[in-house]
């Protein structure tokens, strides 16, 4: 098992190496988002909404513009008699969609299949 100090040193070296590579460096979360530009991403929003689409633009609030978008909304209802949970999904496709960042809960660079 590697000691904690070894791990720390490795991390420091790695960080030093990465300062030389500019555009591909990931130092903070938004850098990872930048690397997904022009790639398909998976975005989760509040209230059971999911989007898949090509990331064309974003800003520091995580406002985004996606292309060839597929939106899935999931509605959960409880049957009044049987108390069974009924899950309904609605799917729709949109050529371009601006998404306001305040509803975004996560972005994944990999297009996770449902």
């Amino acid at each position: 098992m590697a000691s904690a100090s070894d791990g720390g040193e490795d991390q420091a070296t790695l960080a030093n190496q990465q300062t030389n590579i500019d555009e591909s460096t990931v130092k903070e979360p938004l850098d990872l988002v930048r690397l997904s530009l022009d790639e398909r991403v998976y975005v989760k929003l509040r209230n059971d909404r999911e989007l898949r689409g090509k990331l064309h633009s974003y800003d520091q609030h995580l406002n985004m513009l996606l292309g060839e978008v597929e939106e899935i909304t999931t509605i959960r209802e409880v049957d009044e008699e049987t108390y069974e949970e009924i899950i309904k999904s609605n799917k729709r496709s949109v050529p371009y969609l601006f998404v306001r960042g305040d509803a975004v809960t996560l972005i994944s660079p990999h297009e996770i299949r449902s």
């Binding site: 938004l30 022009d38 064309h56 633009s57 292309g67 371009y96 969609l97 601006f98 306001r100």
Partner: peptide, 30 residues
């Protein structure tokens, strides 16, 4: 603005190349 969830722009008025460039520029200066 705060109550907007989505905006659908017309397909023909989106220039993705301009957007990519502007986004990279803004990411660098941020």
């Amino acid at each position: 603005g705060s109550v907007v969830r989505y905006v659908q722009p017309p397909e023909e008025s989106v220039d993705v190349d301009i957007l990519h460039d502007a986004t990279r520029r803004e990411a660098r200066s941020a």
